[in-house]
Nucleic acid binder design. Structure first.
Length: 398
DNA sequence: TAGCACCCCGACTGCGACTT
DNA sequence: AAGTCGCAGTCGGGGTGCTA
């Protein structure tokens, strides 16, 4: 076994991020250890201790860092002086023990950092404490692997002291939302309908009528009831969470479509989101076909009634707005929407995740009306609308 | 180049809690 | 007794990016 050449003291590092998309997610906390001294920094609160530590490090040691930590650092903190020698222990572990005995990224990282970060943002300082403790523990594992794989010594790190924990938690500062409703400067009487559609009328869909910032939500099973409520509300736009078009070239939704092999089950908008690191489910998978069929028919009906319809995708919108997806926790999603500035009963009472996604997709309608959106895909297929947080001035510069 | 790990979400299932 | 509801867990196909 060849020992890695290390010209100076190794710096063990792990970044905690809000997700895996380089485009929309960001590193929220970075922990590192050099010479047995563990440190924490929060990139968003501006801090150059990490830069100093990196400048004097002989090598940068991570686990899975080639895939996760380093791209994030390079993308969002390009000024950081990364050491020339970078070692990903996941690769060394796999070489020594094989893939089966190497921890997966999940096993190594443990409790999901995005959940803890969103928990902290929702007002739970204990979640930030756990995030730091997990990061500290992960870095201890890093050092154990380093001793094992590289045959190099690593200084012992003392246990976390609560004094430092409290200090770091104070440094993280009060969390602020990435964007809020009032920045859209919309007519307070503007009405927008958002629907989180299911594949059949036997299962309730999420419904949201936004009037200004006030959301009224419910669950609705039938198309007829939705159409009646849309006619009643006369919204400026209806925003649907459902695929509203087929991949270019496809003739039908089902798998017997002779063009399936040639044109596939994804559209351009899904490919764009995936390239940006936002996971998307293919709209013509068997389990999605009923939804797509229903969405296309419903959108057609609403447009014939005279109301414009857009396709929104709550998951992508939540990623962009820095609001946790429902997968993280319904409570955190509710909190994220509250912090965005949505009012209404959903803040207090019981609310289902489909209603929260309906609120989110209605918010996509707000960004559309405000002209602050990106239309992903191509005109021929029909576009997926996602919020764009950039100011128009910034867009002009780019 | 084959083989993985990982990501997405609705549908479905089984289960317990609750209502009618 | 029957129905409804939420919750947690499982499943499934393709795309992507990385490693052996």
């Amino acid at each position: 076994m060849v020992k890695p050449h290390v010209p100076g003291p190794p710096l063990f590092l792990q970044a905690e991020t809000t997700g895996t998309s380089l485009w929309y997610d960001r590193a929220v906390m970075i922990g590192w250890d050099t010479g047995g001294r563990y440190e924490v920094a929060f990139p968003e609160s501006g801090d150059d201790r990490l830069a100093e530590a990196l400048a004097s490090a002989g090598a940068l040691v991570t686990f899975d860092g080639f895939r996760l930590d380093l791209p994030f650092l390079k993308q969002h903190s390009p000024h950081l002086p990364l050491p020339e020698h970078q070692i990903d222990l996941r690769t060394l572990m796999r070489r020594k023990y094989g893939a089966a005995k190497t921890p997966s990224a999940k096993e190594h990282r443990g409790e999901r950092a995005p959940n803890l970060w969103y928990g902290y943002r929702a007002g739970d300082p204990g979640a930030l404490r756990r995030l730091i403790e997990n990061n500290h523990a992960a870095i201890q594992r890093l050092k154990a692997m380093w001793r094992d794989c590289a045959g190099q010594p690593a200084h012992q790190t003392p246990p976390l002291s609560s004094r430092y924990l409290d200090l770091w938690i104070a440094q993280a500062g009060a969390p602020t939302p990435l964007f809020t409703y009032d920045r859209l400067r919309l007519d307070p009487n503007l009405r927008v309908v958002g629907i989180d559609l299911t594949g059949s009328e036997t299962r309730p869909s999420g419904w949201c009528l936004l009037e200004g910032a006030r959301a009224e939500t419910r669950r609705i099973k039938t198309d007829d009831e939705m159409l009646a409520r849309i006619a009643d509300a006369a919204p400026a736009i209806v925003s649907l969470d459902s695929p509203l078009s087929l991949p270019a070239g496809r003739l039908r939704v089902d798998d017997r479509d002779p063009t399936r092999a040639q044109f596939g089950i994804n559209r351009e908008c899904e490919r764009v989101l995936r390239r940006r690191g936002v996971g998307v489910y293919p709209p013509l998978l068997p389990s999605m076909q009923a939804l797509t069929t229903r969405g296309i028919a419903l959108a057609d009906h609403i447009r014939r009634m005279g109301f414009p319809v857009i396709e929104g995708f709550p998951g992508a919108a939540q990623d962009i707005l820095g609001i946790p997806r429902k997968k993280a926790s319904v409570e955190y999603l509710r909190d994220g929407l509250t912090r965005f500035g949505v009012m209404g009963e959903f803040r207090q009472g019981r609310v289902s995740h489909d209603e929260l996604d309906a609120i989110t997709v209605a918010i996509v309608g707000l960004f559309y009306i405000a002209g602050r959106y990106e239309a992903l895909g191509d005109e021929q297929e029909g576009c997926l609308i996602v919020p764009d947080l950039r100011e128009s001035a910034e867009i002009m510069i780019q």
